[in-house]
């Protein structure tokens, strides 16, 4: 269940807008931040808040890459899987991440810290190969850099 304050603030937010639907993604992100991922329960709550049916919310939720319908780790690594990054060594970056974290693409580490997901172009071609970790960009990646990033995050966790 959502905490009351959060619920009320969302409701206020929605009340101020003509078509509640417009806020669907925002509401989903809020719920996702709260729950860690958008659970079935969260979809139903979002539907209720937005005056939509759970299906309509799920149609949007399953469509977007950054809305997680399945549990993810604390840090979600979106490694860019598009043309420019391919040219600049996406394969090795992905492989490096996989070996470092000892997981495959789409999986979460056993300690629940990292989830590795490929993503279509995130718009940081200038810094390719790039990745996003919890909405923060890391560019010009190489194995050493990845090491240090991961170490840093592990330490923070």
């Amino acid at each position: 269940m959502l905490p009351k304050e959060l619920r009320e603030s969302l409701k206020d937010h929605i009340a101020n807008i003509d078509h509640p639907r417009e806020l669907a993604v925002d509401v989903m992100f809020t719920l996702q931040d709260h729950y860690g991922y958008l659970s079935d329960e969260a979809v139903k709550e979002a539907a209720e808040l937005l005056e939509m049916t759970p299906l309509e919310v799920d149609e949007i939720a399953t469509f977007y890459t950054f809305v997680y319908r399945e549990p993810v780790g604390k840090y979600v690594i979106h490694v860019c899987d598009s043309v420019i990054c391919w040219m600049d060594g996406y394969e090795s970056i992905k492989d490096c991440l996989c070996t470092k974290l000892a997981i495959n693409v789409g999986e979460t580490t056993a300690d629940g810290l990292f989830t590795l997901l490929p993503v279509c172009c995130i718009g940081y071609c200038d810094m390719s190969p790039a990745m996003l970790i919890n909405r923060k960009v890391y560019g010009h990646l190489n194995p050493e850099k990845i090491d240090s990033i991961l170490e840093k995050l592990k330490a923070e966790a």
């Binding site: 319908r69 789409g106 997901l117």
Partner: peptide
């Protein structure tokens, strides 16, 4: 197919 999958 896992409809809820996080993979794109």
């Amino acid at each position: 197919v896992n409809v809820k999958s996080n993979l794109p």
